[in-house]
Design a protein around this nucleic acid. Structure first.
Lengths: 147, 147
DNA sequence: CTGCATTCCCTGTTCGGACAAGTTTCTGGG
DNA sequence: CCCAGAAACTTGTCCGAACAGGGAATGCAG
């Protein structure tokens, strides 16, 4: 059983830290049966939703990093969930496609995310969920104002 | 400029994800001048607060992992912020001490955390902060109930 | 059209995090 | 006492994340 670390200097930061940890761990556990690691499913979900696109588009949409994306795509390609094609109009760019095989995972991934959401909100009422979302949005806007 | 990724299937999970990302990035930026990486400062803060202790105690308090702690301690030791001594009563265990040198960093680390907290809460009123903390605690308790 | 800044991607490196597997040491039931 | 199981640490491996640096292609200003 883990202690709950608390650093008096920053109760809210500490709490954000712990929530983030637990949330990521839960996501990892729910995605385990799909064979995906947390982060990879976001790439696939973006491709499923928006279709084939350049790596830089994925980077922008996921607020990720070009070098991280290179490796993430490479791993997804190695297991056949994604393939790359040169862009016909820009020889610097490669277009990333979700493969047919990846679509077989779609239901599983989306139900894992639904389960993650369900477990995260627990027994909160609808109005409470709205409050929670507003709180998270507030924190996000504070954090991005601080960049 | 980054887009804000939003996955319809899980608005709160998505928001948690983004807040976690931004918060960690901000912590990394604030700690940068101390030469520490996010995570290392937690080890040091725990040692400063509770004194010399076994690695497993640090793991428990930080809800971390034994193998992660081994390497984190090794890195802190390499830069002279920490040293290890065999436990006099248990030959399996090693006691981790914060060095004198590490205490020179203490003010800097603690003010970085204070700044992190200040930027995270932004202009929230005291009562709003209490609500936010309650919300985060709710989320944490949902997440740990799901483990 | 030429030169230069920008864009897009890739590689190297470092780190935290997690899991598996293994070694040494301790502890408690028989 | 002895042995099985637990505890503490270590190592190997894989992954996401971030930063630095660099190469190739593009596009824009002059």
């Amino acid at each position: 059983m883990a202690q709950q670390p608390d650093f008096g200097a920053g109760p809210i930061s500490s709490a954000v830290f712990r929530v983030a940890r637990a949330h990521k761990a839960l996501a990892a556990r729910l995605l385990r049966e799909t064979g995906l690691r947390p982060g990879q499913e976001l790439v696939l979900m973006t491709l499923w939703r928006d279709g084939p696109q350049r790596q830089v588009d994925l980077v922008d949409k996921l607020d990720s990093d070009a070098s991280t994306m290179v490796r993430s795509i490479a791993r997804l390609e190695k297991v056949g969930l994604v393939h790359k094609e040169p862009s016909p109009t820009d020889r610097r760019a490669t277009i990333v496609h979700a493969t047919e095989a990846s679509f077989h995972l779609r239901d599983e991934v989306e139900s894992a995310w639904a389960e993650l959401e369900r477990l995260t909100v627990g027994s909160m009422s609808r109005s409470r969920r709205t409050e929670v979302l507003a709180t998270l949005t507030d924190l996000e806007s504070n954090l991005s104002a601080a960049e």
